[in-house]
């Protein structure tokens, strides 16, 4: 079998669960997450690493899963929007703040936005408005004009 036809076994931890998959090298991480693992909370928006709808955490860092090959995530630990809350039936702090501040309308960008905000708050626990806008610069929302998203994040900073 030539290198091109060879499939690779990828082992990773996703939302705390160890999973295996056999992938072609060209398979994108977002497709592994959505199609193989059925975790469709991670969205494909632009598919060109601009919009951030596909943002997940890979080894604790927010990344755009449309621009990572699944085979390159072998051995990684991944958190998707389905894994942010320790209790599946309840929202986590960021999700709750989005809910309370009406930080979404259509909701398409929200999973990616939440993943980016988690990193933003880890990097800047006392983020000001500039830090917040800079921190979500990799996520595009076409509904809210960002104001309520910024307010939601500000509420989390204020609580700390």
């Amino acid at each position: 079998m030539s290198e091109v036809e060879k499939r690779h076994v990828v082992t990773l931890e996703i939302n705390g669960v160890r999973r295996n998959a056999e992938v072609e090298p060209r398979k994108l991480l977002v497709h592994l997450i959505r199609e193989d693992f059925g975790l469709t909370g991670t969205h494909v928006g632009c598919d060109t690493s601009q919009c951030g709808a596909c943002t997940v955490e890979l080894d604790g860092q927010a990344i755009k899963s449309c621009t990572v090959l699944a085979v390159m995530a072998d051995g990684a630990s991944i958190t998707t929007i389905e894994g942010v809350s320790p209790v599946a039936s309840r929202l986590d702090a960021v999700q709750t703040a989005f809910h309370e501040h009406h930080a979404l309308q259509c909701g398409f960008c929200t999973p990616g936005m939440v993943m980016s905000v988690r990193q933003l708050l880890r990097d800047h626990p006392d983020a000001n408005e500039d830090d917040i806008r800079h921190g979500i610069a990799g996520n595009i929302c076409r509904c809210t004009g960002y104001h309520n998203i910024v307010r939601a994040v500000e509420s989390l900073v204020a609580k700390d």
Binding site: G52, I63, T67, S116, D123, H134, G138, N139
Partner: peptide, 12 residues
């Protein structure tokens, strides 16, 4: 670095 792309892209 702060002026390159966005946080997710900078992570990779």
């Amino acid at each position: 670095a702060t002026r390159i792309a966005d946080p997710q892209v900078r992570n990779r």
